[in-house]
Design a protein around this nucleic acid. Structure first.
Lengths: 249, 249
DNA sequence: TCAATAAATGCTTTTTTTTGCAGTATTTAA
DNA sequence: TTAAATACTGCAAAAAAAAGCATTTATTGA
C-alpha cells in the first residue's frame, strides 16, 4: 500500500468521524502503529488534521468557533429570538429572563417598538438600555455570581408585586414529562416567581435541551403557554410536547 | 475515548447548561471523576471555562470584559480608588454608587477581602461579580438609560430599608458652599436616599469637579464624612473644604 | 543489470502521558 | 460545630510516544 493512499484513508476517517484512534487505523490498514503514527505526524505538520495523544482529530472539531463566538449555538438562539420578537406588542409589558438565549432576544428587540421590560439579568438590562423606546426595570436582589441574575427572597417578593403580559424565560433542562428543571435551587425559586407574575409564559430553548432534566423543578410543562425552539413547529422531535395546552412556535 | 474528545464534550455541556457537576460528567462519559477533574482544571487553565467547587461554569457569564477605553481622567480616578480601597474593612457592608470613579473603586477591590456590596449601578454590579468574596446586592428599579443606575420611587423605598457602614458616592458637581449638586433630579433623589442609608458617606471626586455646581442639590458638604480626590490632602485646592467635620484623604 | 543511496517500515527499548485508586486535606452545608 | 462531599497528592499500571536500529523496498545513475 502506498503512503499517499494510507494518508488519504486516514484523512477520510477523520473527516467522517471527527476523530480516529491510531490503533484502529493500524488494524484497519494492517500496518504497524509506528507507520500510522508517522503518517499522522506528517499530516499534522501539514495542518491537515490535529494529532493528539492516542489518535487524531479533525481541525474543525477544535478550532475557531471558540473565540469568535462566546455563545454556544448562537445561530439557533438567533433563530429562536427572531421568532420570539414576533410575539412582542407595541406598548406591552414583558419580562425577560437571563441566559444567552434571552440575551439574544433582548438584542433583537427592534429599536422602534415601545415596551416596558422587567428583568433580573444584568446583561439583559445592559443590552436593553441601548433600545431608545424600552423602559427597563431591574428587579433587584442578591446577585448570583454564576448566572448574573438576582436571586433570593427580596427578588421573589418584588416579583410578587408585579404582573406582566408575557414573560420570556430560558431553562437549564426541559422534558415533556418532568417539565422545566434546573441545577440551582435559588434560580428555580426565582423562576417560579417569574411565572407567577406573568399572564403568559414563553419558553425559549434550543432543541438540544429537550428531553433533559436535573435536580430541581421549576414547573410542569403545562405552565408554559408557548415554547420556541429553533426547529420548525412540525418537527418530529417536538412530538412529545404536542398537546392542546402548549403552543409551539 | 480521546482526551480532546472528552474535553470537547465537557465544554459542550457547560455551554449548554451553563453549569455542570463533575460527577454528572464522569457518569455521562463513564470515566473516573479524577479524570474529569483534571480535564476541567486544564480547561480552566486555558480559560475555556471556570472551575468551581464540584463542577464548572461557563465563561460567558463571568468574562464580561467591560471596556474602560474612554474613561475621562482615568489616572486620577485610579488614584482615588486606591485611596478608597484603604477604607474597606473585612466583612464590611458598603454601598457603591455608579459613575466611572466608583466603577474604578469596584475594580480595585482586592480579591481577598470579604464584603457585602449594595449598588444600583449595572456596571458596578458586573464588575463586583468578578470578586469571589464580595456578595453583590443590586438595588433594583427603573434603570436610567443615561447613568445606567436604578432611579425612582421603588429604588428609594428599598434604600430606606437598608443601612450600610459606608457608602462611596460620586457626584456631578461639588462646591464647598453649595454642596453636592447634580444635573438630574431623579438621580438626586436616589443619592439622598443612599446618604440616608449610610452611617458614613465617602465622596469620590476628581479635583476638576471642585467648586462647581448645578441645578439640583443632593446634600450639604457637611453630609459627607470623607472626601477623596486624587490630590494630596494638604493641597491648597482643598483649603475651602478643610474644616472640622469633613475628613480629607 | 547492478550497486549505491535514500526512503519506508517494523521492532525493541526508554520515556512520557494518561488514568484510576487510595489516603489525606479541604470545603460546603446542615 | 460535625458530617458529607469534594479536592488534592502521590503512586502504580497501562497506554502511547519517541528514539534508535535493523531490515526491506524503492530510486537513481552508471
Amino acid at each position: 500500500m502506498l503512503k499517499e493512499e494510507r494518508q488519504h484513508i486516514i484523512l477520510n476517517e477523520v473527516a467522517l468521524h471527527n476523530k480516529v484512534l491510531l490503533t484502529d487505523i493500524a488494524e484497519l490498514l494492517d500496518v504497524s502503529i509506528d507507520t500510522i503514527r508517522r503518517d499522522v505526524k506528517e499530516l499534522d505538520g501539514e495542518n491537515r488534521l490535529r494529532k493528539v495523544h492516542g489518535g487524531a482529530i479533525s481541525l474543525g472539531f477544535t478550532s475557531s468557533t471558540v473565540q469568535n463566538a462566546n455563545i454556544y449555538a448562537l445561530e439557533e438562539k438567533r433563530k429562536i429570538a427572531e421568532k420570539a420578537v414576533t410575539m412582542l406588542k407595541e406598548g406591552g409589558v414583558i419580562f425577560i429572563d437571563g441566559g444567552t438565549t434571552c440575551l439574544e432576544l433582548a438584542r433583537q428587540i427592534p429599536e422602534t417598538i415601545k415596551l416596558t421590560c422587567f428583568t433580573m439579568s444584568l446583561q439583559v438590562a445592559m443590552e436593553l438600555l441601548s433600545k431608545p423606546n424600552v423602559k427597563v426595570i431591574f428587579v433587584g436582589g442578591e446577585i448570583s455570581p454564576d448566572s448574573q441574575i438576582s436571586v433570593g427572597l427580596n427578588t421573589i417578593h418584588q416579583l410578587s408585586e408585579i404582573q406582566v403580559d408575557y414573560s420570556f424565560i430560558g431553562t437549564g433542562y426541559v422534558d415533556s414529562i418532568f417539565g422545566l428543571t434546573e441545577f440551582d435551587w435559588d434560580i428555580v425559586q426565582v423562576k417560579k416567581a417569574v411565572i407567577k407574575a406573568s399572564k403568559k409564559t414563553v419558553l425559549l430553548s434550543i432543541s438540544e435541551k429537550l428531553n433533559s432534566q436535573h435536580r430541581y423543578k421549576t414547573c410542569d410543562i403545562n405552565a408554559i403557554n408557548t415554547m420556541i425552539t429553533e426547529l420548525n413547529p412540525n418537527n418530529n422531535l417536538l412530538n412529545l410536547f404536542r398537546n392542546q395546552e402548549i403552543h409551539l412556535l
